[in-house]
Amino acid sequence: MAEDDANADYILNVSNLTVEISNQLILNNLNFKIKRGITLAVVGPNAAGKTTLFRALLNLVPYSGKIEWIGKVKIGYVPQILSVRDMPISVGEFLSFKNDSEADIKAVLASVGLSAETADKGLAALSGGQMRRVLIAWAIVDKPDVLLFDEPTSGVDLDSEEAIYGMLRSLTVKNGITLMLISHDLHIVREYSDYALALNKCLVFFGESKEVMKPETQRLIYGEPICREYGDIHA
C-alpha cells in the first residue's frame, strides 16, 4: 500500500534496462523514474542510445531489465522519420489513421494553429513548418497519456522551431500529457522542458533542465561517460 502511494505520482519506472543489438551494447543498465505530467528531454551525443531508449519503451526492440508503465497508459509516438512526403494522402486522411472523428480532427488542427480546410490539403503540398504542426496534431489527436516525440523540429528553420516547441509545451500541459522528447538543442531543452535525462550508452545526467546550460553539466553530457546508477525526480 505504502509502495502504491509512493508510485502514484510516477508514470514510468525503468530498472536495469540494457539493450544489445547484434552483440553491440546500445544501452547499459539504465535506472530512472518519471513523474506524471512532466516534460522530459532526452539528450546526448550522436549514437548515445536516445532513439533506442524510445524504441525499448515502446517494446520495439528486445531488452533486458524492467520497463513499468504505472497505471493504464496510452502511449503516443512520433518517430523522427515519417515517409509521407511522396504519398497521395490528405492531412485529414493521415490524421484519421489515429482518430476517425471529423470533429476531433478539426479541433486538433485548430489547436495547432491550422485551419479546418487544411484537412483537405495533400501532405506533399505542406511547408516544413506546417508539416511539423500536422505531426503535433497527429501526436495528440488520439489523446495519449504519454507522448514520445523524436526530434520534434527536425528539418524546421530556427524561427519556427521555438514556436513549435512552445505550442507542443502548452498543448501537453493543457491536456495533462507526459511528454518525452529527444532534442540536440540544449537551449530548447532549458526553455521547454522540466527535466533532462542525458544518455551516453548509460545514464550520465538526470536533473532539472535549467542545469543543462552549466559547463559542468555539459561536461557530463558530452565528455567521457561517467555512468550514474540511478535517476529520480523528487521535485
Partner: peptide, 16 residues
C-alpha cells in the same frame, strides 16, 4: 490497406 499504408509511413509506428 490502412495497416499497410501505416507501415509504409513508419514501420515502427505500425508495430507500436
Amino acid at each position: 490497406y490502412r495497416k499497410i499504408v501505416l507501415g509504409l509511413i513508419s514501420e515502427e509506428l505500425a508495430t507500436s
